[in-house]
């Protein structure tokens, strides 16, 4: 095999390989949340995070704006500390609120951000003060039953008074 033909073929092979890699990177994987430089971190404390995991999406108005970076237990406040990497192109006011939500009924859990009205924007390392934890099904049912029972009880007492 001629040296130049061989080099040509290897060149084609390498280019094809890189093209395939780029296709995978941009068309298949979403390479908008890439390197560490293009994001900034914010922290939020939740009383309960439910099934929230690392790498879960952070959405605002349904649009993906970042990902959960780490989830840890805060031994000082006895709640969950969630660190999120937000894409640098999106800015949120400091009084924005975060809540742990579920996509669909049984879907994955994510953090929803609702923008506040302040002029100052969140910076790297800031904390989101307004944080609403996850709805836990057992508690929800428990609360529902409790309310029901209370309603029933008050009915009875009302009847009793009558």
């Amino acid at each position: 095999m001629n040296r130049t033909t061989l080099n040509l073929w290897v060149g084609i092979f390498v280019l094809l390989g890189f093209a395939a890699f780029l296709m995978l990177a941009f068309k298949v994987g979403n390479l908008s949340f890439g390197g560490a430089g293009s994001t900034y971190d914010v922290v939020a404390h939740f009383d309960n995070i439910g099934q929230l995991k690392e790498r879960a999406p952070v959405r605002s108005a349904g649009v993906l704006v970042g990902r959960v970076q780490s989830v840890s237990f805060d031994t000082k406040h006895y709640n969950a500390e969630v660190r999120m990497a937000i894409d640098a192109q999106y800015h949120f006011p400091v009084d924005s609120s975060a809540s742990v939500l579920t996509s669909g009924i049984l879907g994955e859990q994510y953090v929803g951000l609702d923008a506040g009205g302040d002029d100052k924007m969140l910076k790297n390392g800031d904390e989101i003060k307004l944080a609403q934890g996850a709805m836990v099904l057992e508690r929800l049912i428990g609360q529902f039953l409790f309310n029901k029972a209370q309603d029933g009880g008050s009915d009875k007492t009302a009847k009793g008074v009558q």
Binding site: F13, L16, G17, A19, A20, M23, V28
Partner: peptide
């Protein structure tokens, strides 16, 4: 060197 290139091509063709 060839292996990752081949794997990328395999993945792209699969998609």
């Amino acid at each position: 060197i060839s292996m990752p290139l081949l794997a990328a091509l395999f993945g792209a063709m699969g998609i």
